[in-house]
Each structure stands twice: as structure tokens, then as C-alpha cells.
């Protein structure tokens, strides 16, 4: 099978095309900014989707890892003078180590203990960020230095849009590679029958840990990028509600669908931004979407639509 014939390649090309055309269609900087935010959330969601949709585990604290990446970049650059790229990498490595530490003992247990562990982790991170005022600026947050790379600095919304778009394409490419590999197949097998997969030689616990680590690294990098882009971060980035928002995006877009994750992020990031009057009802709407999707459209938007399209073609 050539590279072009691999499943998902057409989607990747389509995504790249959409991202290339979008700036021409968006009339102002505000909307371009929304698109950039969509991209940042989408990066987190692609990783989270690998965890929920393929490894079958839920993380109720992914915002915590996002925030750790953001604060790592902010503090290492602002307080210690590190170059921003090094800070981003350090944040990702730190988060990966933390993820391994939590996940290894938990994944060996049968049941949904990762949900509990990530919930605990996320809340603890959120509280620490809130309380360590000296280091993190406390609940009021702290400003972030600009991102510089050997003297070059992204200038304006457009520059950030291209950076985030590029990163998103890379994330999707990595995720597609994983899914199409024997490991991806093994993960899908675990979904089909965990017993049969284990008996066939799949080390279920080990793969779940690895996928979890990958998903947290995606979140951390997205967090670092967000910090430099937004210029200001607060501990609310680590909140339980933010973690739930991320899960909602993945669930709505489609479990076990990489492009679904992008669609979910797109819908649930733009909606609150565009419909400001929705703000008071935001939680109500998110809750209704979660319940409704799970009852009526369990596979999520993109897989359901894809299924319908296939049936139409027959």
C-alpha cells in the first residue's frame, strides 16, 4: 500500500487545503484568532481521542496537563530566562514523566481507574497552580513572554495561525501513523475483545500507558503554544470544567476518529466565541450535548455521518 493509499491521507490533504484557504475567507483578525484557538484545542483533542477512542480510557484531568505545559513555558522563560523552545520541550518531557508515573500502576488494574486518577491529578494541579502565588502568580494568573526562536518572533494573528495550523497537521499525521500501524490495530483489537487481544500477545496495559503519555504530551505542547499566543495564563486553564470541555469536544466529534476530534474542537470552540449571549447557558448546552450524543449518536458526529454517507452510496 503506497503512502497515498493509506487510510486518512485524503483527510489530511483536505485538512491542509482547508487550513490554507481559511485566512482568505475570514474577514477579520478576531475570526482568525478563533481559528487559531480551534487549532490549539484540536491538537489536544487529537491526542485525547487516541486515549478515549482507541485505548478506551477516559482522562478527566487533561486540562491539568495543558496547564502544566503552559506554566512550564511561562515560568521557565519568564523567571529563568530559558529559550522558549527549550521550555516547551522541557514542559513536554516533564508532563510525559508525570504521565508515566501515574499511569503505569493504574493501567494494570481492571476498570476505570484512570478516570479517577486523572481526576485527582487534574484537581491537585489546579489547586497547586492556584496556591503557589510566588511561583505562578496565583488565581490572578501571570503574563507570558513572547515566543522567540533565534531572534525571530511571530508577529500578529496570521503568523500564529500558520504556526498552529502546521502543528495541527503534524499532530494529525502522527496520530494517523499510529492508528495505521500494528500498534493501532492492536488497540482496535482491544476494543473488539480485550481477552482475545491479550491471548494474541497484545500487552494491553503497556499500550494504554503509551497512548496516555502521547496524549498528555500533545496537551502539554498545545498548552505551551497557547501561553505564548495568548500572552497571559491563569490557573483556570487546569480547571475540571476545562477538562470536561475537552472530553465533550472529543465525544461530540467522534470517538476513534481523528478528524472527528478536529471537528468537535472546531464546533465547541467557535460556538461560545461567536454566540456571546450563550455564555450563561454554556454549561447547560455542553451538558446537553454530552448526554444527547451518548444516547442518540454514540459514535459521534464524524463516524455517524461517514456511516450515513456509506449507506447512501449503496
Amino acid at each position: 500500500m503506497t503512502a497515498l493509499g493509506r487510510p486518512g491521507t485524503r483527510g489530511l490533504v483536505a485538512l491542509a487545503a482547508i487550513m490554507a484557504i481559511l485566512p482568505a475567507l475570514l474577514p477579520n483578525d478576531f475570526l482568525l484568532g478563533v481559528a487559531t484557538l480551534v487549532g490549539i484545542n484540536a491538537i489536544v483533542c487529537v491526542g485525547l481521542n487516541l486515549l478515549i477512542g482507541y485505548a478506551g480510557q477516559i482522562s478527566l484531568g487533561h486540562a491539568g496537563f495543558f496547564a502544566l505545559g503552559a506554566y512550564a513555558s511561562t515560568i521557565l522563560v519568564g523567571e529563568f530566562g530559558w529559550p522558549p523552545l527549550a521550555a516547551l520541550v522541557a514542559g513536554a518531557v516533564g508532563v510525559a514523566l508525570l504521565a508515566v508515573m501515574i499511569a503505569r500502576p493504574i493501567m494494570k488494574l481492571k476498570g476505570h481507574y484512570l478516570a479517577m486518577g486523572t481526576l485527582g491529578m487534574g484537581v491537585v494541579i489546579s489547586i497547586v497552580l492556584d496556591q503557589e502565588v510566588e511561583l505562578t502568580g496565583g488565581p490572578d494568573g501571570m503574563p507570558v513572554d513572547a515566543f522567540t526562536l533565534f531572534g525571530w518572533e511571530p508577529a500578529g494573528e496570521m503568523a500564529w495561525y500558520w504556526i498552529v495550523s502546521g502543528l495541527l497537521l503534524v499532530s494529525v499525521w502522527l496520530a494517523l501513523n499510529l492508528i495505521n500501524s500494528p500498534i493501532g490495530r492492536a488497540l482496535r483489537a482491544v476494543h473488539g475483545s480485550e481477552v482475545a487481544a491479550a491471548v494474541a500477545g497484545v500487552d494491553v496495559a503497556r499500550y494504554k500507558v503509551r497512548v496516555f503519555v502521547v496524549s498528555t504530551v500533545f496537551a502539554s505542547i498545545a498548552g505551551s503554544v497557547f501561553a505564548h499566543y495568548s500572552g497571559f495564563i491563569t490557573p483556570s486553564e487546569a480547571s475540571f470544567l476545562h477538562s470536561i470541555e475537552l472530553v465533550t469536544m472529543v465525544v461530540l466529534g467522534g470517538l476513534a476518529s481523528i478528524f472527528g476530534a478536529v471537528v468537535g474542537a472546531a464546533i465547541l470552540t467557535t460556538l461560545p466565541q461567536l454566540l456571546a449571549f450563550l455564555h450563561d447557558f454554556e454549561m447547560l448546552v455542553f451538558g446537553a450535548i454530552l448526554i444527547g450524543t451518548m444516547i442518540f449518536m454514540r459514535k459521534g458526529l464524524v463516524p455517524t455521518l461517514a456511516g450515513l454517507a456509506r449507506r447512501w452510496r449503496r
Binding site: 470536561i244 454549561m283 447547560l284 451538558g287 446537553a288 450535548i289 454530552l290 448526554i291 451518548m294
Partner: peptide
């Protein structure tokens, strides 16, 4: 989802 719905 229900928890968020109730809270909202």
C-alpha cells in the same frame, strides 16, 4: 454531562 447540565 448530567452533572454539567444540572449545574448549568
Amino acid at each position: 454531562g448530567a452533572s454539567i447540565l444540572f449545574r448549568g
